[in-house]
Design a protein around this nucleic acid. Structure first.
Lengths: 340, 340
DNA sequence: CTGAAAGCGCTTACAG
DNA sequence: CTGAAAGCGCTTACAG
């Protein structure tokens, strides 16, 4: 009769007829122990299906070798490859990654931060710079090393590894304007608690405002879902004088817009141009392929991991890393239709 | 000068001039404590940025309230909404979800299982039924409750919450054949350590084999990446007598195939039909929209969570849950071209 | 090479 | 309502 409780070091020690100290040594530094004992212990471990209790070990050693990443969502590929790269660098350093999501809710972000810290995260990857004051205070008083990614700010007392959403959107919009578009529609992301979405929207608006003759016909905020993009586009198309180009907060929104345009028998880009942001896999699969802004996800993930590892090791680098985005022109962008 | 170490219960107690027992009570059952002490303690917690040590608490209470999910990848939306639903049900029950990925590698799966168990997971969600004997043995000897999802098997001594990949692929292929296709190409997923991919491939092959006159022109395995799908399709199109319909292991592969077909100036579905599997967001965004098999991700996630929670609570339900898939016919499927 | 024992941060009967 | 103390599963000087 075996009990239902998880086997402990003590169980292993009993079965192998050694002390817990010996079992522990075998787990952590096998060479310190004689061959005979080692064999018995390894056998005992296998027959019991023993796995060390991480919490107990962390308690005894005062080290966890884990960091956390807290991201808005797993639902689109917006963060997947960045997190993947982040994780790979950590793994090389023997550090485990814990992932949690917020659903873009700052309150949940704080809860998740607490949860990961409580589980031993000695450093955190956070997305964007919009968060509760309470969260900032918490991070500050605990001095929890954290790097903020997917955005960038200069000279702050924070570590940023990201890119300039505003500048990227500004640049993309200028290129759209350079094609001759005069009436621009903006399908922004949901800007509540989302500085990246806001910066993209504002960058696009500023680029239009900087021209003599072009104008923003309408700005519609929409959550990052295909269907929301489709609806927003339909709303645009109902206007008496609809835009000839749509700047979208991300590729998912742009993909939705493309569906709506197609439903309205509009040819892309002959009748309407559509531009996304992120360059996730979807962007090159749609027809025509989507013009978008490539976000340096992998470089961000790698750089963030490096910085965070340093910070956890006590050598914080407050300079941060600013990466470049790249405008990717594909078939969904063209000049405006001749007869406006 | 504050130390760099994390604040502990003791620190809070000292600052508030109470015992650790009182602080602990305030954390877990505030009503048991007087108002005055409570105020002081809450203030101390805030000024120290105290967060309980999960491991220490788990050690003392012998309960973790956490389960783990170990999935192949976060990189496409294949699992995202299922896991999301899974998490939501857990959250309602006050249970935390830990997520880890395997990259489709059974060795990594075992490592991740160990890692999550060591971190307190008292139950696990696993994907598919292909795993190391060592993993099965480990799970069995520890009696770790686990539900296996994204596939289904009857009458096993395991808990399955999933669907029949073979039957779904068989059915989808029959519908393709019913359009009159005689030459079928199969772009399968990578079947190494992937029973779902294998079942889908085999189901498709069996459906063709059950006919008098249709045949499988070629079967090409490819990892679940757009580019791999594109390449596989190109290989198909180089055949002297290429298939008129492509059955793909998932939507990502099918999306890649659509790109290749388009590059070859083939009209979909007039020149070639393409069918995917999963019905992720991508499927309805491509042009033409993709015919595919809808996987009941959300129901799976919810049902799996329910079963797992029961099992962890000591009432395992070995009957399992078999869910239905749904064939979604969209524009990418049509009859074969007249002149074969 | 091996073991006895203290201590990591928490919770919880047990007293008062 | 509150505290002293034992104990959860580990690791690691310290002895031998």
């Amino acid at each position: 009769m075996s009990t239902n409780a998880r086997p402990t070091l003590q169980d292993v020690a009993d079965l192998a007829n050694v002390s817990t100290a010996t079992v522990s040594r075998i787990l952590n530094d096998p060479d310190k122990v004689g061959q005979a004992a080692r064999d018995r212990v390894e056998h005992a471990i296998a027959t019991l299906g023993y796995t060390p209790n991480f919490g107990a070990r962390a308690l005894a050693t005062n080290q966890t070798n884990t960091v956390g990443a807290i991201i808005p969502t797993l639902s689109n590929a917006m963060f997947a490859s960045g997190i993947q790269a982040f994780q790979e660098v950590l793994a090389e350093a023997g550090v485990t990654l814990l992932i949690a999501t917020t659903g873009y809710d700052p309150k949940i972000e704080l809860r998740q931060i607490r949860s990961l810290v409580s589980r031993g995260a000695s450093g955190l990857l956070l997305i964007g710079n919009d968060r509760l004051d309470e969260t900032r205070k918490y991070l500050a008083t605990r001095r929890t090393p954290h790097v903020i990614s997917w955005c960038f700010r200069d000279g702050a007392d924070q570590m940023f590894v990201g890119f300039d959403n505003y500048a990227a959107a500004y640049d993309a919009t200028r290129r759209v304007l350079a094609k001759g578009h005069k009436r621009i529609g903006i399908i922004a992301g949901d800007c509540t608690s989302n500085d990246r979405a806001r910066a993209r929207r504002d960058g696009a608006m500023a680029a239009v405002a900087a021209t003599q003759d072009a104008q923003v016909v309408q700005v519609i905020p929409a959550p990052y879902r295909i269907d929301a993009g489709r609806q927003a586009c339909e709303e645009m198309l109902r206007l008496a004088c609809p835009p000839t180009a749509l700047i979208c907060g991300n590729d998912v929104l742009a993909a939705g817009a493309m569906i709506a345009a197609r439903n309205h028998k509009l040819k892309i880009p002959d009748d309407i141009s559509i531009v996304g942001f992120d360059d996730i896999g979807l962007a090159s699969v749609v027809t025509p392929a989507m013009t978008t802004v490539r976000v340096p996800q992998i470089e961000m993930g790698r750089a963030a991991a490096g910085l965070l590892l340093d910070a956890v090791a006590g050598k914080p680098d407050l300079t941060g890393v600013r990466l470049d985005t790249q405008f990717i022109e594909r078939g969904s962008l063209g000049p405006p239709p001749k007869k406006g």
